[in-house]
Design a protein around this nucleic acid. Structure first.
Lengths: 186, 186
DNA sequence: CCATATTGTATCGCAGCGATACCAATTACT
DNA sequence: AGTAATTGGTATCGCTGCGATACAATATGG
């Protein structure tokens, strides 16, 4: 079946990128999961920058992720801030140091050149992968983690955005971040 | 940059598939790396069904892979056969039990349905990912692990195939397998 | 007000992973 | 032919990710 090839390709790409992340992160004492968590947090909105969101995003248990985050904090890569309203939740943000690292490693050096050299239709590739990811997430009952913009709960009047779930106003920039509560617009 | 989105998508797909593999393999006592190794070996030709080829394919050290393979053999998933000519090399093959497992788990249940539901142009997606993978492998100095057919060393006269590197005759079916020595045809 | 759900942490046992060291067989060099 | 360099493979060590379980604290809903 043709789709099986796509599966093989994505698995192989995933394995090689993982290997690459390990190599790149090692000098900084970081494992692949650390870089992935930081990369997620750099793109997560304020409803989604929590340990449990990271766990759901990466498909890991919250207990595990909790320990990884502690390691990241010790390494000076993560800042924690208690939530204003809910004493249970913690907000996470990559430090400047972590952001600099992400800028250098995510995507890894050579990626952009390889993208260009492959001659692939980037937009079409992105569209195809996005659709596939959505279908898989839906099939497995996982959260979508889509951009706030494009969520069915988002309301906007002119340039003023508000989240229909929380009734909170949203800065325009923030509607480009990933949200744990995202549901694709109809 | 647009290509960065593709990177994010592939990383996320990789993470979720990895999580899925862990869940699916757990009842059989198998970790993701075990399933990936078996899936590779099921598609590897006779020059490529060795521990070192598995290590190169997955981007892991040979020492590590060696231990994984021992675990797989103990689990009755792998058969070892010494090479006829070179006493150093070992040939690996998934057992019938392992093949049955692969048929059930690779691709995981729901994958084909998700592929269909996504409405993506499978052929185009496959082409784009293949090109990207090739470019990345070349950029990182990694082996291609392409199909024997499509390799620049392959020679064929009518329906008789021979490998230009080893001078060995190849059964037509075997030219569809993955080869460690693969180099794309000019 | 109490049962239940949610968020997060702590601890335990297991196993993957790289690094290093090592061995045996093959190949290259001279 | 004989020695050096290379290659394929395994063994061992230390570290750390990972799930499972248990637990504490806060929120929510009847």
């Amino acid at each position: 079946m043709a789709g099986d090839r796509v599966f093989d390709l994505i698995e192989r790409l995933g394995a090689l990128l993982r290997s690459e992340l390990r190599r790149l992160g090692a000098p900084h004492g970081l494992e692949p999961v650390h870089l992935q968590a930081l990369a997620y947090l750099a793109r997560a909105n304020r409803y989604s920058d929590t340990p449990i969101a990271v766990a759901e995003f990466l498909g890991l248990t919250k207990g595990n992720v909790s320990q990884r985050l502690i390691a990241l904090e010790k390494a000076g890569m993560l800042l924690r801030r208690p939530d204003r309203d809910d004493a249970r939740v913690v907000h996470l943000a990559p430090t400047a140091k972590a952001q600099a690292l992400l800028a250098a490693l995510s995507p890894p050096p050579g990626w952009r050149a390889a993208m260009a050299a492959s001659g692939a239709d980037t937009a079409r590739l992105e569209a195809g992968l996005t659709g596939l990811l959505s279908a898989l997430q839906q099939a497995n009952g996982r959260r979508t983690f889509g951009q706030c913009r494009g969520c069915r709960f988002l309301q906007h009047v002119g340039n003023t955005f508000t989240c229909g779930l929380t009734r909170d106003p949203l800065e325009p920039d923030h509607t480009l971040l990933l949200c744990r509560e995202h549901e694709a617009a109809a």
